[in-house]
Simulated assay, not measured.
Amino acid sequence: MTGEDAALVDRFCDMLAAEAGAARNTLLAYRSDLAKAREALGSPLGEASDEQLKHLGEAWSDLAPSTVARRAAALRRFYAFLFEEGIRSDDPSAVLPKPKQQRPLPRILDPHEVERMLEAAEERAASDRPLALRNLALIELLYGSGLRASELVTLPKTALRRGEPFLILAGKGGKERLVPVSERAHEAVRRWIEVHPGGRWLFPGGKVHLSRVRLFQLVREMAADAGIAPDRVSPHVLRHAFATHLLSGGADLRALQALLGHSDIATTQIYTHVDASRLVELVNARHPLARSRD
């Protein structure tokens, strides 16, 4: 992207960084989506008319609905910025495509399956072999605190302090949040620290910290050790298990939102599906008509 469009996008990204606290990866994603929109239009973004924007739906017809929705969202925010700054006298974004998306429910792990994974990891850690102790600490933090994979692998060695039941970390967009740490996780990390090879990171790997790809592989290996199909398990599935099992145990949706670090509660609701039998039980126990028949 060159010329006037490049200058406008620079100003737009400066605003996102300064006012919305957008992270570097978020800004790169916006730049990429706006550049692809400029390519599809074949003319300057800043000057695009309603009629030109209407044709983007056709140009993006081969893309996944989620991709179209993301690019359209980037354009809407861009044109809202141009309008608010007085760079344009109108906001043409109303004509942008609005594909219907159906977000799939995350894969489910039963509490007993997670317990099997934890037990298998504990059995291996009984040998006091360093890698087995590391793996136990990884799974205890993943399931016990609901950390994202990127948050877990980038924890500094000093993240958990003795006697403190939580840690403070920077999640998406650099937003800080408190994350609870169970006594089990504390103990697993303590055992791992005793044989830790040293360095800045709690989970070192290569020249820096453990990679997300390697974490993914380790989690699948632990699933296989517990007799669970590896393709059913990932770090995100364990984060989802943390959320759904807490909800089933009576956790409040707003509290869950804070624990997961979601800025929008609508995102949290994806994690809140429960089995049909529990819903039926809830209706039978709490609905006024059900009680009136007693």
Rank of each mutant, 00 (worst) to 15 (best):
G3R: 03
A6W: 06
A7H: 15
V9A: 02
D10M: 04
F12V: 15
C13D: 14
D14P: 11
M15G: 02
M15D: 09
M15W: 11
G21W: 07
T26K: 00
L27G: 15
L28Q: 11
A29D: 04
A29P: 08
R31I: 05
R31N: 13
S32D: 15
S32N: 11
K36F: 12
E39P: 04
E39K: 08
E39T: 03
A40G: 04
G42N: 03
G42P: 05
E47A: 08
A48S: 12
A48P: 08
S49Q: 07
S49V: 12
D50R: 09
H55I: 14
H55T: 12
G57K: 01
E58Q: 15
E58L: 15
A59C: 02
W60F: 01
S61K: 12
A64F: 04
A64H: 13
T67Y: 00
V68C: 07
R71Y: 08
R76K: 06
A80P: 10
L82N: 11
R88Y: 06
S89C: 12
D90I: 07
P92F: 05
A94D: 07
V95F: 01
L96K: 06
Q102A: 15
L105N: 00
L109W: 01
P111A: 00
H112W: 12
V114Q: 09
V114R: 01
L118E: 10
E119C: 00
E123I: 10
R124T: 02
A125I: 04
P130Y: 03
R134N: 09
N135K: 07
L138Q: 01
L138F: 01
I139S: 06
L141F: 03
Y143T: 00
S145P: 06
S145H: 05
G146F: 01
L147G: 07
S150H: 15
L152Q: 11
L152S: 08
T154V: 09
L155Y: 03
L155T: 02
P156K: 05
F166I: 00
I168W: 04
G174Q: 04
E176K: 08
S182Y: 10
R184C: 10
H186W: 06
H186M: 14
E187W: 06
E187H: 06
A188W: 05
W192V: 00
E194T: 05
P197W: 11
R200K: 12
W201D: 05
H209F: 05
L210V: 12
L210A: 05
R212P: 13
R214K: 15
V219D: 02
V219G: 07
M222D: 10
A223D: 05
A223M: 07
D225T: 13
G227K: 01
G227E: 10
I228A: 05
V233K: 01
H236W: 13
H236Q: 13
V237P: 03
L238G: 09
L238P: 00
R239T: 08
A241W: 01
A243Y: 01
T244E: 08
R254C: 15
Q257N: 06
Q257T: 14
L259D: 03
L259Y: 00
L260D: 03
H262T: 09
D264L: 12
T268E: 10
T272K: 09
H273C: 07
L282R: 11
A285L: 07
H287Y: 11
H287S: 12
L289R: 13
A290H: 01
A290Q: 02
S292R: 14
D294Y: 07
D294R: 04
